[in-house]
Write a protein that binds this DNA or RNA. Structure first.
Lengths: 199, 199
DNA sequence: AGCGTAATAACCAAACTTGACTAAGCGAGG
DNA sequence: CCTCGCTTAGTCAAGTTTGGTTATTACGCT
């Protein structure tokens, strides 16, 4: 729950403010927060006593907006949560890795092409990231550590691009997927050649 | 839904088999599948007509186990899903990045220490991964592409380790988090020195 | 032979996410 | 001056994930 952190940072805020801030960070991408989750999170945090509603304003006949602030308990909880993320290593699960584990189900040439394509997609992302890193807006108006986050992303991306190329070549080279000393005896066959869908 | 892929691979299977296979791959780690999700997924896939129950056996008075197989429609759907994952780039969201964005809320020395610690945790993971890569079991009994997945993991890990060290040094060096030309005027203060919890 | 512990096979309620939807004010263009 | 569309603020139902629980049988130890 990093919503708590945001609220803490912007002290008295209402839901829509949080939503806009997250959107402006395009945080729906790198955090796990879609607009719909925000209000639920705010209510839950309030129930747990980590947030406290401060006031309910109403402009005209629009929906009333509730403003929240963080309680001391919430402050403490946030420090705990933050530390948990900083000190523990929990890797996110990458859907591509799951898909890659089904490599033998893909024709070799398609697999290689897809990997090359993936490399290019990543490269494109890197370009646009670099561009926005060089832009004035980020350089002069955003905290420096935002740039550091980009660097992390960039380092990972470069590692992955190299991997894509490397593996694409290996796949094209036609090495068998099966371990040495094990003939094609189990599971679906190696779809090297134009075999139809196995069934 | 990569459950479908597994079922397709092991053809007629019942839920518990899938569960064991996933567990043996420690797939709860790199895929997005906890044991509890399996039965729900199987039922959902059946409702959608992608799977078909084949038989319901019962040994003694234990819970009946239902065996499934893949329908042609399921076959097709799997191919579609698989391609979607291979050709599209969708990056998982890393909770650490979210936490890192709150860097100014951490005392500098703790942040640096945590980063170094993170580097070491990753290094430890790399070691154990390398060890199991060199083991006979993986080298001779697992398809080659399992090793390739390890390589990807390894490349990412190395990139991240380097980043951790680099950033830890920068943090220790005491550079300001705020962009040039902007004094400490907004949000929580820079907790460089021994200030207590701001409140 | 008896008893405790582990394995087998599955279920379920609660929590969490998601993305579409409502409904009013504000501004700009015709 | 009117109306079309965008912004504001938040709701809601439907779908998913989680991880703890149940109930029976096999196994090992004394």
């Amino acid at each position: 729950m990093m919503i708590l952190g945001l609220v803490r940072w912007m002290q008295p805020v209402h839901g829509y403010d949080v939503r806009r801030e997250l959107l402006s960070w395009s945080a729906d991408k790198w955090a796990n927060v879609q607009p719909g989750s925000i209000y639920h999170a705010l209510r839950k945090l309030t129930d747990e006593g980590l947030l406290r509603p401060v006031s309910v304003e109403q402009v005209g006949a629009r929906p009333a907006r509730t403003t929240y602030e963080v309680t001391p308990k919430g402050d403490e909880e946030f420090e705990t949560l933050l530390r948990a993320q900083w000190w523990q290593l929990n890797e996110p699960t990458d859907p591509f890795v799951a898909a890659f584990s089904f490599l033998p189900a893909m024709p070799r040439d398609e697999a290689a092409a897809a990997l090359r394509n993936r490399g290019n997609l990543i490269r494109a992302g890197v370009e646009s990231m670099r561009a926005s890193l060089d832009s004035d807006w980020v350089r002069n108006r955003k905290p420096v550590h935002v740039g550091w986050m980009f660097e992390l992303w960039l380092a990972r991306a470069e590692a992955e691009m190299a991997w894509c190329e490397r593996i694409a070549e290996r796949i094209e080279s036609g090495v068998s997927y099966l371990p040495a000393g094990m003939d094609r005896a189990e599971g679906w066959s190696d779809r090297t050649d134009g075999a139809g869908q196995p069934e």
